[in-house]
Design a protein around this nucleic acid. Structure first.
Lengths: 127, 127
DNA sequence: GCTTGACCTGGAGTGCACTTCAGGGGCGAC
DNA sequence: GTCGCCCCTGAAGTGCACTCCAGGTCAAGC
């Protein structure tokens, strides 16, 4: 019987079985995952590859709803490549902006860390 | 009457008045914000400065609970600088790792964007 | 043939970080 | 003196993304 069980797919993807079922029910996948004769899911390579992309989008902060919209576009076949591209580009811009913001905040936090390190060095020098 | 009203503080900080009240009730501030004679909050410079730090911690993904722990440490005065430093350093490490992860995922998404751009250039060249 | 373990379903529950609401001042402008 | 506006409180509600649960099926091992 080819394909991965849900537990194997979850392990491979760094998700839980529950999350995989939830993603499928919520329309984030391109197709219902194929089943074995006993009705258990068997994830093919293509399924896993797609879910890897889903995890990348999620890990960069794309809401479930937007991932679903992207999946809808891909599922509905050729002809909407521009729409898909625009969706990804918009996401890219948001991620870049968020990276810049986080980096800048991190700089300020680093500064604060430096102050504490100094203070502790000094007090240790006195003691 | 000195200090900022809650609406002014919210405007300054990019938060809502509701969030400011929520932060205060939840122990994220260093002291109860001073009140005017009519019982309205008046944010002093120090209050605003502290909340700026809170927003930086929050914007870099620190959970409310950890911000509260940090506020507790600062509020309890001198002597726990090492603990504060460790808290900030641990946060710093998590942020750096998250930045690296997001950057790497973004690279993969960029790659996909490039593929769509190519495809669209080609199809436009044919048409 | 009975137990065990992985999987199934629909639906309820959880944790987080706000956000909204109901009901009630206080105060300056008209 | 009353209207409108900003503010107050405690408590309930919201949206998101899972996570857990009850009750059931099925195949394999003893």
């Amino acid at each position: 019987m080819p394909g991965l069980t849900i537990a194997e797919a979850a392990e491979t993807l760094g998700l839980t079985s529950d999350t995989l079922r939830y993603y499928e029910k919520d329309g984030l996948l391109l197709r219902p995952v194929p089943r074995s004769s006993s009705g258990h899911r068997r994830y093919a390579e293509d399924d896993v590859r797609w879910i890897v992309l889903v995890t990348r989008l999620r890990a960069t902060g794309m809401p479930i709803r937007d991932v679903r919209r992207y999946a809808d576009l891909v599922r509905s076949g050729d002809g909407n490549e521009l729409e898909r591209l625009e969706l990804l580009q918009a996401h890219r811009e948001r991620v870049l902006q968020q990276l810049a913001e986080v980096t800048s905040h991190l700089g300020a936090i680093d500064h604060k860390i430096g102050i504490y390190e100094d203070r502790l060095r000094r007090s240790r020098a006195i003691a």
